[in-house]
Simulated scan of single mutants.
Amino acid sequence: MEPSGGTSSRADQFKRQPDYDRTSCDTSLSGLFPSAALNFTANENNTVGLTYSRRITRPGYDALNPFEYFLDRYTFNRGNPFLKPEYTNTFDLSYTLYKKYTLSAGYSRTTDGIAEVVLPDAEKSALYQTNANLAEQISYSLNLTAPFTFTKWWSSNTNITLFNNQFKSPDLSGQVLDNNQTAVQVYNSQNFTASKTLSIELSGNYQSKMIYGTFRFKPRYTVDAGLNKSFANKKMNMKLAVNDIFKTRYAKISSAYPGLDYRIFQRGDSRTMRLTLSYKFGSNEIKPSRNRSTALDDEAGRLKK
């Protein structure tokens, strides 16, 4: 990835020294992280819910490691040992009709939000990827979930989310960050029951152009398909899944950082085919064991980041 000319000259882009927020990191273990939920059922077909939560997210250990490694001649990765945890307050108001259709509105505000960024390094005349604390992230969202049953053998589920993301930071490596973008995501699945033992699913996902932190994403879409077949009185099951049929699950990213211009194209091995065979032994009445989360699980999650 090589930087190209933007609103400022190449020399101006790299005269800014890479900078971390070296204020003291928040290592306090104290704090309140409440959550609450209220539900009101007007009648059998109308339900209103309100939820609130406050949570803390600490950076993963890889994000804190200051070790540098180069991705190419003009790009390298560097951890940020001065990352602070982020705090998020979330509100969600929902309305459910006929126990099927749900419309919800959400609001969240994150302080010291941890975000992956690409910034200029003046000494190396290169760009580097790192994680930084953004002063504030505010999100508004409107979500609609609508399942439909057309016939006994054909049903669908649609989820539409309209959201607005705002990212602000008064001094991000010498620049003022103030990004704001409204976007939409649409997911739809079509389910077909060919027989008592055979079902087919087609699903698609679309995301419009959006901004996240210092990145600007182009629109993208994907299409997946699956087939499910059972045998031996439904004790044996075969699943065939094909992901990203048209190989469109890639990301086109450009800079949303003031005075800096670059282009990133990311594509992985997203088109896959998976065949799964399973067989149920014994009684189907045995209840599965409960999953329990512990503090060790949280630490393990941070190690994997």
Rank of each mutant, 00 (worst) to 15 (best):
S24I: 11
S24L: 12
S24C: 01
S24R: 15
D26M: 09
D26R: 13
T27Y: 15
T27L: 14
T27C: 10
S28P: 02
L29I: 04
L29Q: 12
S30R: 07
S30T: 14
S30N: 14
G31Q: 12
F33H: 11
P34M: 06
P34V: 08
S35M: 05
S35N: 15
S35I: 05
A36Y: 10
A36E: 08
L38T: 10
L38C: 04
L38E: 02
F40G: 01
T41L: 11
A42K: 14
N45K: 10
V48H: 02
G49K: 09
L50S: 02
T51I: 12
S53W: 08
S53E: 03
S53H: 04
R55G: 01
R55F: 01
R55L: 03
T57C: 03
T57G: 04
R58E: 07
P59C: 05
P59A: 05
D62M: 08
D62E: 13
D62I: 07
P66C: 09
E68D: 09
E68K: 15
F70N: 11
L71W: 00
L71H: 00
L71G: 01
D72I: 01
R73K: 15
R73E: 15
R73G: 14
Y74D: 11
T75A: 08
F76L: 01
F76C: 00
F76S: 00
F82D: 11
L83N: 03
K84H: 09
K84D: 09
Y87G: 04
T88V: 15
T88F: 14
N89V: 05
N89G: 10
N89I: 04
N89S: 11
N89H: 15
F91V: 08
D92G: 07
D92P: 04
L93V: 13
S94H: 15
T96L: 03
L97A: 14
L97K: 12
Y98R: 12
K100N: 10
Y101C: 02
Y101G: 02
Y101V: 12
Y101Q: 13
T102L: 03
L103C: 09
S104W: 11
G106D: 05
R109T: 12
R109I: 14
T111A: 08
T111D: 11
T111Q: 13
D112P: 09
G113H: 06
G113P: 00
A115M: 06
V117D: 00
V117W: 00
V118P: 00
L119R: 09
L119P: 02
P120D: 05
A122Y: 10
A122M: 03
E123A: 12
L127S: 06
L127M: 10
L127H: 04
L127Y: 06
Y128S: 01
Q129N: 13
Q129L: 05
T130H: 08
N131P: 00
N133C: 04
L134I: 01
L134V: 02
A135T: 12
E136Q: 14
E136A: 13
S139F: 03
Y140C: 03
L142M: 07
N143H: 14
